[in-house]
């Protein structure tokens, strides 16, 4: 494939919604189990890090530590939900369950299928954010004024990480190899995106690197500012970054999957 072809806009139809619906139906079968992680995880982290570790940490930028990490927990959950949905889970559906093969024998095309998967991945992020906001609010760690804006933003952040996951699904030789991007990309992001300490604590070159190449940095920035009940002009840059890179990777991931699956 010519490099330009990887960014050719794929033709996706509204039928991709049927794939979204299929995944939603599977999700709903285990709804209790699926709702447990976004409900429980923030509680565990907030108790351990926010109130435990937080005792030893002075406030950050005038904000108590628990309040500082609470929005990062939402951002991390947005990342994990869609990345894992569109990496391991999509790979299982594609390779082991042959679900995609079955669907492309119907009027749906492979582009529709992948678009449906990506939409579903982003939806998982939205679900997690939606469950976590009230839990964190119960602890009094989020200002509710703009907090609902986090939900639509979680969709676009989710799309970005869904696309990242799908790109790896498209190029991974086997399911074990998805461990590499998790170890080398997702885990460092979890730690170095201004999640548990401000980026300014890192050397300046690393700060620039994180801003340029670690998508989670922007997601954390946006959700943190919204959760403080503020609006700031820096939001425009972060949101634009997420939208622009997200769209580019969405297109790339669909084209990479097409290359993998059309033989």
């Amino acid at each position: 494939m010519n490099p330009v072809d990887y960014f050719r806009i794929p033709s996706v139809s509204s039928r991709s919604f049927k794939v979204w619906q299929r995944n939603k139906d599977v999700f709903m079968k285990d709804i209790k189990l699926n709702f447990l992680p976004p409900f429980l995880e923030p509680i565990l982290y907030l108790v351990a890090l926010g109130f435990g570790l937080g005792k030893f940490v002075e406030s950050i930028d005038g904000v108590p530590y628990a309040r500082f990490i609470a929005p990062a927990l939402i951002a991390v959950s947005v990342m994990y939900a869609s990345f894992f949905e569109c990496s391991y889970s999509s790979y299982v559906r594609m390779y082991y369950q042959k679900t995609f093969d079955a669907i492309i024998a119907t009027p749906l095309t492979i582009e529709d299928v992948i678009a449906g998967e990506l939409l579903w991945g982003a939806t998982r992020s939205v679900i997690n954010a939606t469950v976590m906001i009230p839990v964190i609010a119960l602890f009094g760690l989020i200002d509710l004024k703009y907090s609902l804006l986090i939900i639509p933003f979680a969709f676009f952040g989710g799309l970005l990480f869904a696309a990242i996951g799908m790109c790896f699904t498209a190029i991974t030789p086997n399911i074990m190899s998805i461990n590499y991007p998790v170890l080398l990309f997702i885990t460092p992001m979890f730690l170095f995106s201004g999640t548990f300490f401000p980026l300014s604590a890192l050397p300046v070159p690393i700060q620039y690197f994180a801003t340029a190449f670690l998508p989670l940095t922007h997601i954390v920035n946006v959700i943190r500012i919204l959760s403080y009940g503020m609006l700031s002009s820096s939001l425009i840059f972060d949101v634009a970054w997420v939208l622009f890179v997200g769209m580019a990777l969405l297109v790339l991931s669909i084209n990479l999957m097409k290359r993998r699956l059309i033989v």
């Binding site: 039928r15 299929r22 679900t99 079955a102 119907t106 009027p107």
Partner: peptide
């Protein structure tokens, strides 16, 4: 390549939606 996440009945019903 049946959909292992679904029952026999659901398999056909979910597939019908694609059409």
């Amino acid at each position: 390549n049946l959909d292992e996440d679904f029952t026999v009945y659901e398999n056909l019903l979910v597939y019908s939606r694609y059409f």
